[in-house]
Amino acid sequence: MNPLDTLIRQHVVPVMKAAGFAKRGRIFRRAAPNGDHAFLHIDADAVDPEKFVFEVSFWMVPLPCWEFAYDLGDDSGGGRPVS
């Protein structure tokens, strides 16, 4: 297994799941009761093949931006990008 995926499974998943985040790949997402969304993304960075480097990105998407970017009217509840 990839060392980053092992690190995520052992150290990140338990904390993020306990905090109410859902996991998809290396992205964790949580929707607040008011509709705002929080995301945490962990990704490998191929800086040096001799070293294991990764980056963590965290961002917030307020409800008005979420509604602008996604069509929330579909039955899946997951939204899809608006074209």
Rank of each mutant, 00 (worst) to 15 (best):
A31C: 11
V12F: 07
L4V: 07
L4N: 05
W66Q: 11
F39L: 08
R30C: 03
H11Q: 11
A38E: 14
R24P: 02
V53E: 11
D75M: 08
L7P: 01
V53P: 01
F28T: 04
A38C: 10
V15K: 09
I27E: 08
K17D: 00
A19S: 00
G79N: 03
P14Q: 07
V53I: 11
N34F: 01
I42Y: 04
M16C: 03
H37N: 08
D45L: 15
P14R: 07
G79P: 01
A69K: 14
D36S: 13
F21S: 03
A69C: 13
L4E: 10
N34K: 02
H41M: 04
A44M: 11
V82D: 04
R26S: 13
A22N: 09
L40V: 15
E50T: 15
L72M: 12
V47I: 13
A69E: 14
F58E: 08
A44Y: 13
V56C: 13
W66I: 10
P14L: 07
G79D: 02
R80N: 14
L72S: 09
I27V: 14
F52M: 03
H41C: 07
V53A: 00
A18T: 05
A46I: 13
G20H: 01
K17Q: 00
I8E: 00
L4S: 05
Q10S: 02
P64V: 02
F28I: 04
D71F: 01
D36N: 15
V47R: 14
D43Y: 00
G79H: 05
V12K: 03
A31V: 14
L7D: 04
M16V: 01
A38D: 10
G35T: 08
G77V: 06
T6G: 10
K51G: 12
S83K: 10
K51E: 13
V82A: 12
R29K: 03
K23Q: 10
P81Q: 06
C65P: 03
F39D: 10
D74M: 13
P81N: 06
T6L: 14
H37D: 12
K23M: 04
K23I: 00
L40H: 12
Q10T: 07
F54S: 14
P49H: 02
K51N: 12
G35N: 01
W59K: 04
F39C: 11
V61L: 15
K51C: 10
F58G: 11
V56F: 11
